[in-house]
Amino acid sequence: MATILIAEDDSHIRELISFHMQNEGLDTVEADNGVDALAIVENAGIDLVILDIMMPRMDGWELCRELRSGGRDIPILMLTAKGEAGQKVKGFQLGTDDYLTKPFDPDELVLRVKALLRRYRIATSHIIQLGDIMLNRLSFKVVRGTEEMTLPLKEFELLFKLASHPGQIFTREQLIVQIWGIAYEGDDRTVDVHIKRLRERFAGDSTHFTIETARSLGYRLVLHP
Rank of each mutant, 00 (worst) to 15 (best):
129 Q>V: 08
149 M>S: 07
125 S>H: 10
146 T>V: 09
155 E>V: 14
143 V>F: 04
168 Q>C: 11
130 L>T: 01
169 I>L: 14
139 S>Y: 12
129 Q>R: 10
154 K>H: 09
165 H>N: 10
159 L>Q: 00
148 E>K: 03
168 Q>M: 11
158 L>P: 02
137 R>M: 13
154 K>A: 10
149 M>C: 08
165 H>L: 10
154 K>I: 11
143 V>N: 05
127 I>H: 09
158 L>Y: 04
145 G>W: 04
169 I>C: 15
167 G>R: 09
162 L>P: 00
140 F>C: 09
156 F>S: 00
163 A>P: 00
131 G>F: 05
162 L>Y: 01
171 T>H: 11
125 S>K: 12
170 F>H: 04
136 N>Y: 02
130 L>V: 05
125 S>Y: 05
166 P>Y: 04
130 L>A: 03
155 E>T: 14
143 V>L: 07
138 L>C: 11
125 S>W: 04
158 L>C: 07
128 I>Q: 01
164 S>W: 01
150 T>F: 15
142 V>T: 03
164 S>N: 04
167 G>Q: 08
170 F>K: 04
158 L>M: 07
149 M>W: 11
169 I>E: 14
153 L>T: 13
142 V>H: 02
165 H>W: 12
133 I>W: 01
142 V>W: 01
137 R>P: 03
154 K>Y: 13
141 K>N: 13
139 S>G: 12
130 L>D: 00
159 L>A: 02
139 S>N: 09
136 N>L: 06
170 F>N: 01
165 H>D: 10
167 G>P: 04
167 G>D: 05
147 E>H: 12
123 A>V: 14
141 K>P: 02
137 R>T: 10
149 M>G: 06
165 H>E: 10
132 D>F: 10
129 Q>F: 06
140 F>N: 07
168 Q>T: 10
150 T>M: 14
135 L>T: 00
128 I>D: 00
158 L>G: 03
155 E>I: 12
149 M>P: 04
158 L>N: 02
165 H>Q: 15
149 M>T: 06
162 L>I: 06
136 N>D: 09
145 G>M: 04
135 L>K: 01
143 V>G: 05
131 G>I: 07
158 L>V: 06
161 K>Y: 06
148 E>D: 06
128 I>V: 10
147 E>L: 11
165 H>K: 12
145 G>C: 09
150 T>D: 09
146 T>M: 12
136 N>C: 09
155 E>H: 14
159 L>K: 00
139 S>D: 11
151 L>W: 02
158 L>T: 05
140 F>G: 07
163 A>C: 06
126 H>Q: 15
148 E>F: 08
166 P>F: 03
139 S>L: 14
159 L>H: 00
124 T>C: 13
146 T>K: 15
128 I>L: 06
148 E>I: 03
143 V>T: 06
156 F>T: 00
126 H>W: 15
134 M>H: 05
155 E>G: 10
171 T>R: 06
146 T>H: 08
161 K>G: 09
128 I>R: 03
152 P>D: 07
167 G>V: 08
140 F>E: 04
140 F>Q: 08
159 L>Y: 00
152 P>T: 13
152 P>M: 08
